[in-house]
């Protein structure tokens, strides 16, 4: 799968309160949450996002709470992938489990706000269309790739259960 979009650049330690403030956690609807994505640190963020855009951030992206509303809000506002230097543990799980594509690379400083990137999720290769730079992200281990292929953890589990029943 290829994702092509414009970069919204963030710094280190973007936390889940930044991504979606707790006051909006009275909804489980991705679109509704998406309207308020990044509101407290970048008030007009959701309005600036075009469907297919990409978040690029520094280290420890998604630190803080376990709220799955955070990756849901990112998805809900139209972001198609997150690239960061590193991800916090629970955010990492949640993104895998709900099928939000994310990649880890060490060349964050070489990517600027507004750059156009092309991501090939099948091999983790990211092309910067502004300057033709290429970045390689680490590919996911097989177990995680299986979950991603099934479109998230619930599909993966339900399929496994079905297989077990048939056997």
């Amino acid at each position: 799968m290829i994702i092509k979009g414009r970069v919204h650049k963030f710094g280190d330690d973007v936390n889940t309160d930044d991504i979606i403030s707790a006051k909006y956690l009275v909804s489980t609807n991705a679109e509704e949450l998406g309207v308020h994505c990044m509101e407290s640190i970048r008030p007009n963020f959701a309005r600036c996002v075009k469907r297919g855009d990409i978040i690029v951030a520094g280290k420890n992206f998604g630190c803080g709470s376990s709220r799955e509303h955070a990756p849901l809000a990112i998805k809900g506002c139209g972001i198609k992938a997150v690239i960061a230097e590193s991800f916090a543990g629970i955010f990492f799980r949640n993104a895998i489990n709900i099928g939000l594509p994310f990649l880890e690379i060490k060349h964050i400083n070489e990517i600027s706000e507004g750059d156009y990137l092309e991501i090939d999720l099948s091999n983790g290769i990211i092309k910067n269309l502004n300057n033709n730079d290429v970045y390689h992200s680490q590919s996911f281990p097989e177990f995680l790739q299986d979950i991603i292929k099934q479109g998230g953890l619930m599909n993966y589990i339900m399929k496994q259960r079905k297989v077990r029943c048939i056997r």
Binding site: S66, R67, E68, G89, R93, N94, N97, I98, M154
Partner: peptide
């Protein structure tokens, strides 16, 4: 626990860790 501060219980010598809602849904099942 679908709450990041689930790690609190580690003070008792157990392995307790925060997860997301989908992890919790899956745990409900199996």
């Amino acid at each position: 626990g679908a709450d990041s501060h689930t790690c609190t219980y580690g003070a008792l010598g157990c392995y307790a860790t925060g997860v997301g809602s989908t992890d919790l849904a899956r745990a409900f099942i199996d």
